[in-house]
Simulated scan of single mutants.
Amino acid sequence: MKTPPTGAPPYWADAKKHLRSVDPVMSDLIDEYEDPPLRSHGRLFETLTRAIVGQQISAKAADAIWNRFITTVGEVIPDRILKTSTDELRAVGLSGRKVEYIQNLANKGDWLKQQNWSVLSDADVVKTLCTLRGVGPWTAEMMLIFTLMRPDVLPLGDIGVVRCIEKLYANGNRLAPEQLTKQAAPWKPFRTVGVWYLWRHLDAEPVLY
């Protein structure tokens, strides 16, 4: 597998310029939350593990569990996961199902490394990752954004993103998926960056998976 990129995306400046030109709401968000940009640490397994931890719980709860998780496990690599007992993993606050998912992911560590993710389309990355137990579209999209740093990802399974679009663009009214997609269409081909600024609006502390 080609080594995932690290640091800030090369498209960031172009993306901000584009978003400013097509969306005054996004322009205001960029002014308010200028730096730092999205960054990747390039650790695919860690990104997927953290995304599983964060499934269907609040960001605050996910951060608390993650901090206990890394205190218990140490370096987030398959070998360390497999050497940590189920009881120890449950003790950090993970459900039994999430422990099972993370252990299964650790057993697939070599398979993850063997995939040539960089040549796959966004849709094919999601399709391939969703063959793993416990990995759905949202979890796969976190890898697209935070490990592969793909520029045009719109994770409609992220309730924070959905509610933020509804608040900023629809006076808090609920929007159907097709309406959300239409609202974000002007951000193309940089919807990832639009999503990043929505996350910053929800929490000024930069998101990292």
Rank of each mutant, 00 (worst) to 15 (best):
R90I: 14
V92F: 04
V92C: 07
V92E: 05
V92D: 01
V92A: 09
G93H: 13
L94D: 02
G96R: 07
R97D: 09
V99M: 01
E100Q: 12
Y101Q: 07
Y101M: 08
N104A: 09
N104P: 13
N104G: 15
L105Y: 03
L105F: 02
L105R: 01
K108V: 00
D110V: 07
D110P: 04
D110Q: 09
W111D: 07
K113G: 06
Q114W: 10
Q115H: 11
N116F: 09
N116E: 09
W117F: 02
S118Y: 02
V119Q: 08
L120P: 01
S121D: 06
S121I: 04
S121Y: 05
D122V: 03
A123M: 12
A123L: 13
A123K: 10
D124L: 08
V126W: 02
K127G: 03
C130M: 12
T131W: 08
T131H: 10
L132Y: 11
R133L: 04
V135M: 00
G136Q: 07
A140G: 01
M142S: 08
M143Q: 05
L144T: 01
L144F: 02
L144R: 00
I145W: 05
I145D: 02
F146T: 03
F146G: 02
L148A: 01
M149V: 08
R150G: 00
R150E: 04
D152V: 08
D152C: 05
L154M: 12
P155I: 07
P155V: 03
P155W: 12
P155T: 06
L156K: 09
G157N: 09
G157S: 05
D158H: 04
G160H: 01
V161W: 08
C164M: 13
I165V: 12
I165D: 05
E166R: 11
L168H: 02
Y169Q: 06
Y169M: 04
Y169C: 04
A170G: 10
N171L: 14
G172W: 10
G172K: 10
G172D: 09
N173K: 14
N173M: 15
L175W: 05
L175N: 10
P177C: 14
Q179L: 07
K182M: 15
K182P: 00
K182D: 11
Q183S: 15
Q183K: 15
A184W: 07
A185N: 10
A185G: 11
P186M: 11
K188V: 12
F190K: 09
R191K: 14
T192H: 05
V193H: 15
G194I: 07
G194E: 06
V195N: 08
V195T: 14
W196R: 06
W196S: 12
R200P: 10
R200C: 09
H201W: 11
H201R: 11
L202M: 06
L202F: 13
A204G: 10
